[in-house]
Every structure is written in structure tokens, then in C-alpha cells.
Design a protein around this nucleic acid. Structure first.
Lengths: 318, 318
DNA sequence: CGCACAAAGGATCATTTGATCGTCATTCTG
DNA sequence: CAGAATGACGATCAAATGATCCTTTGTGCG
């Protein structure tokens, strides 16, 4: 159960002065249409620095490109997904061969959440790369809107450092345990531990949840983080698993399997998660298709963020 | 009381296909960082067309650059304004000598509103250039969020065409009269006319209002649109007027003056407008300083959108 | 039918931009 | 404290971009 560190690149941290300069530069550049040279004069820095400020702004999500239209990628595909799976909403990012899917999905979910969250809302988060990437892009949004985070599963703190979000104090309520522990007894003890219990309960009061959708590929994030071995995944697959949510494996109809491993998990159950009105599942890629299909068939999420090829494949296999 | 047409440039209309192409191009360009050449290949159009699509997206507000930080311009100035005038919030756009102020203020208010409005909200709007410019940038937002508009004054339909918003059907409830009419009797008859009455009442149920702040310069928008003559403005000034909201002139303490012209106005009164929890006043420029000061002293608005030089001047003259 | 006109698309080229590399300062480490 | 490593910064130059001008394609009107 060794827990390797994230294979991602480091976090992006901004101090107050950065934020001020980036915001100012971004305003001049994007809204006023000034050249970087002109901005450099206004800010009293070199032109190249302006270029870097803008770059940093985009990278961190401080500067967000918002497309005021549901047409991101394809309105048609979005509508078809909603109709086909009885969803509340869907986002489909445009196709782009060769580009890594994770950050693209992350941006899309971040944008969806930024629009959907009201000030002081509570956002419940699951486990996975999609969640991690989304949070990174949302980092600048939290301090502004005063949105709090609460985790649906253990193991979240292992990667939340990547996102540039600070500590568990204040606005992040994270379950301070791994996602999976070595024995059912320990898992049970942790679940009834007051603070853990408290966070689990609180998570269910959120109006919005963001969850990753795990595939049962040998390259699954669960494996890469050391939560499962490839052999276990292999075994679960033979028992009918097509994917996982919150560490629980389900079959092609979205029914949670009766697996031993589930008794080792410290997390809200998918069944309890149904109490949350908006559950956003985010995933893309050919290896995720089966997992997404199962999740949607089982109505374990009602909003989907994915990309164009994946959406097409989902609709084909309906 | 002749009503000249808007001195603005024409509206920007987008059809569904434009929206699709622009959204896609914008996603590829800003989020994925692809070059325009690459995007041209993906979309099957010429590179230069991609350039124009992106340009159009920014112009129309379909592509909005959102800065996820309250630091637009200067956090310090914003905080000082809030403290000095007991405001709920403030936005200060960065200084930029030589750039026309109107579109910059418009973008800032549009951004503030886009963030603040919930789906299905009702937005009350006053009269003026700042309102008109703001609405232009918000045009793509309305169909998406299902926000409805309601006018606080007559005369709004005269310029709403500029914004790319369609007709009064559906989401815009506009008072179908001029702002000012030729006799007090006619004004009174209009005010009690059922539909007008209905809109006036509805406007007061909005949770958010956006209003312009009129100066008493000879170049005031009221004059340019033919609602007032320069001579009248001159006269009002001698009676203590420093500015107007919704067609009503007030003095340096924000007290509405007892002027004959007010009996010719078809609009909600500033007094009634206090029922609206968030009243956003938007204005900038040296000639507006006195008007803004009066408005804020009289607590006729509790959120201010302005630019950096204006904010500094306001704080100096406090 | 032809003409003028406007709108959209495309080619050219000056400007703007960001990738690359080298320098300097700062911090970590032995 | 030296040395290495890291990161910030700026110069250079190739690539990307958009302003300008020109061509094409409709569109209305005499």
C-alpha cells in the first residue's frame, strides 16, 4: 500500500504581488488590446516579463477564458448526451488529437464549477486526476468566492498540494486518511473516528460534487498511486468491474460490486452520494469509455464532462 | 424632445454557426494554446479567418476574459472605496490614458454581473451609456443563464438595439415610453398605464440593478440623446444639481432636487430603488466625479464600478 | 442586364510575440 | 564557505499575428 508521490509537475503558487501584476497585465492585454510593449511601459517592467506574467496567468487559472455559450466543442453532442443518459448537463471539449486530455478536461470542469458555484457554497470532491487538475485551475477562485471544499474520500490530501491550495485549514475539509487501508477493521475504526465521521457527513450536505471516473486499465491512476496492484485490477475485471468511483468498483450497469477491497476503503459510498443533487463526473479517453458508460447507466453522476471523441464513442455504444 | 439615434457603432450579431466556430477556435487558442495555423487546419478555414473569429469573439463578449481575483486595477483602491463610502463592493479598472473609458467600464460591469447573477435572476437596468455598453458585452450571457431584463426607466428601448439583444419578447421587459415626455399629465397617464405600471413594479422586485450616473456637463448623454438641452442642464446646475440617476437630478449630498422636469419622467424613483439590495453604479471620468460623489453620499447605489483615476479623485475629495 | 456597392475572404508584410539561450542572483548542500 | 543548483531576468531571433490592401462574391437598383 505504498503511496508514491504524484507524477505531476509542481504546483503553481502566486503571491499577492504576482496576482496584482498579472491581473493588471491581463486586463490591459485582453480587454484593452494593448501590446505587451505598451503594458511593459505602464507596469515599468520588461516586455518579456509581461509575456511571462500573461502566460502564468493562463496557466494558473487566474486568468480564465470564459466562453459564454454552451457550444464548447459541440452543442449537439452535449444535447445528445443529456438526452441519451438522462443527465442534467454535459460539457464536451473540442477534439484535439495529440494534446493531453487531462488539463483540457480540468479546464472544462473548472469553468463549469466556477459558473455553477455560488459564494459560500460547499464543493465535495472525490479522488482522481481529473479532480486534481480541476482544482489546480480553480485555485484562484476559492479565496474569492469563499467556496469551501470537502472530500468524499480519503487520500485526497496526497495530491491536493499540487493544486496550489493551501493547507487543510479554513476552506478545505479533507479526510485525513488514505483512500484504502490495510484492514477492514482499521477502515471501520477510521470511519467512526469523530473528525472523519464529521467530514463524511458534511460531504453529503454539499450541493455539488466533482468526481473522477476510474478505469480498470493497468495504467489506472489507482495503480499509479499505489492504491491497487495491476493484478488486483485484473482480478476485479474478471469479476465484472468496468470502473470505479470513490474507490468502489462497479459493473457495466453501474452496480457496485461486492468486493473485499471495498471494506478497506475510507470514503462516502456511491449510494450515499446520490443525496448530492449535482454530481459532476469528469473523464475522457478511450480507456474510460466503459467506465463512464457504467457510471451513467447506474446514474451515479448526473453531469458529465468529457471530450469530443469520447462523447461520440459513448453515444455509439449507448 | 426629439430623440436622436445612438451615436454608437452598430450592433454585433452572431448566428449559431458563428458561435460554434468562435467557441471552438477560442477554446483551441486560449485553453489549448494552439497556433492560429493549427486551428485553421482543424476547422478547415484559412488562418486569417481564425484570427478574425477570435477577434469577433472578444468584441462581442462571447469570449470573456475573466480575472479570478478582485485585484482588477487595484485591490487597495477598491477596499478604500468600500470603506470610505460604506459600499458593498467596488471594481476599479486599471488606469489607461488615452483609451476610451466607456467600453472598459462596460466590460468591468459585465464581468461583475456575470459573476453575480444566478440563473433565472432578474436584472433591472437604468438609462445611460454605461448601461448600454455593459449590456452589449453581456448579450451572449443572457440566453445562457436565462436572466431576464427589466427597465427602471423609459427610453431604454431606444438604445437596446445596439446591444445585440433581441426584441422585448421573452427576457426583456422594457418600459415602452421615452424617458421624459412633454407634460406632467402625460407622464402620469403613462405611469398608471397597466403595462408600464407592471414593469415599474417588477423592476423593484429585482435583486440587482445596474444604473448609469449622469453628469451635468453640456456633453451629458441626456443632452446628446436629446432628452435635455444644454440650457436646461445649466439651469439645474444653478439649482444645485451635480448629476442624475434614472432621469432625476440630485445635489451634492445625493438629495433629489425638487425640479419641474422630474414630473415629466417615466421611471422608478431613486427612493423606490432603495428596495433593490444590489444597486451597481457605473461611471468614470473627471466630469463624473461630482455626480458619483453625490450618488454615493446619498447611498443611491451600494456598488461602484469606475476606473483608477476616478477612484483616486473620489477618495481625495471624500 | 449591367453597374455599383457592400460584405466576406485571402495575400502580403510590418509588428508583435514567445522559444531559446546566456547571465546573474539566491539558496541549498556538503 | 565554496560549489552546485535553482530560478528570475533579459537579449536575440524565428515564428506567429493582425493591419492593410486587394480580390471575389454576392445583392440591390437603375
Amino acid at each position: 500500500m505504498s503511496q508514491v508521490s504524484a507524477p505531476q509537475d509542481g504546483g503553481f503558487l502566486l503571491d499577492a504581488e504576482d496576482v496584482e501584476q498579472i491581473s493588471r497585465a491581463a486586463w490591459y492585454y485582453y480587454n484593452d488590446g494593448l501590446t505587451q510593449n505598451h503594458i511593459a511601459d505602464l507596469l515599468g517592467v520588461s516586455r518579456i516579463k509581461v509575456s511571462r506574467l500573461l502566460e502564468k496567468g493562463r496557466q494558473t487559472g487566474l486568468v480564465e477564458l470564459r466562453i459564454n455559450s454552451p457550444h464548447e466543442g459541440s452543442l449537439r453532442l452535449q444535447e445528445e448526451l443529456v438526452a441519451a443518459f438522462g443527465l442534467t448537463d454535459a460539457r464536451v471539449v473540442p477534439a484535439a488529437e495529440g494534446l493531453p486530455a487531462a488539463p483540457r478536461i480540468g479546464r472544462a470542469s473548472a469553468s463549469l464549477l466556477t459558473q455553477g458555484l455560488a459564494p459560500n457554497d460547499l464543493l465535495a470532491i472525490g479522488w482522481g486526476e481529473a479532480v486534481s487538475t480541476t482544482l489546480r485551475y480553480m485555485a484562484p477562485v476559492f479565496p474569492q468566492t469563499n467556496v469551501s471544499l470537502v472530500s468524499l474520500t480519503g487520500g485526497v490530501s496526497a495530491y491536493i498540494g499540487n493544486t496550489g491550495l493551501y493547507g487543510p485549514q479554513g476552506f478545505a475539509h479533507l479526510i485525513p486518511t488514505p483512500l484504502r487501508v490495510s484492514s477492514p477493521e482499521l477502515a471501520e475504526m477510521l470511519r467512526v473516528e469523530p473528525y472523519v465521521r464529521h467530514v463524511l457527513d458534511m460531504a453529503l450536505t454539499a450541493k455539488t460534487a466533482l468526481i473522477g471516473i476510474g478505469s480498470v486499465a493497468r495504467s489506472a491512476t489507482l495503480v499509479r498511486y499505489g492504491y491497487c496492484t495491476a493484478a488486483e485490477i485484473e482480478l476485479f475485471t474478471r469479476q465484472g468491474a468496468v470502473g470505479d468511483v470513490l474507490g468502489y468498483f462497479y459493473d457495466r450497469d453501474g452496480q457496485i460490486l461486492d468486493l473485499d477491497v471495498h471494506r478497506h476503503v475510507v470514503a462516502v459510498t456511491p449510494e450515499d452520494m446520490r443525496q448530492i443533487p449535482s454530481v459532476i463526473g469528469a473523464a475522457a479517453g478511450p480507456e474510460k469509455v466503459e467506465a463512464i458508460l457504467g457510471l451513467l447507466r447506474g446514474r451515479l453522476a448526473n453531469i458529465l464532462v468529457t471530450d469530443e471523441p469520447t462523447a461520440k464513442e459513448l453515444l455509439r455504444r449507448i
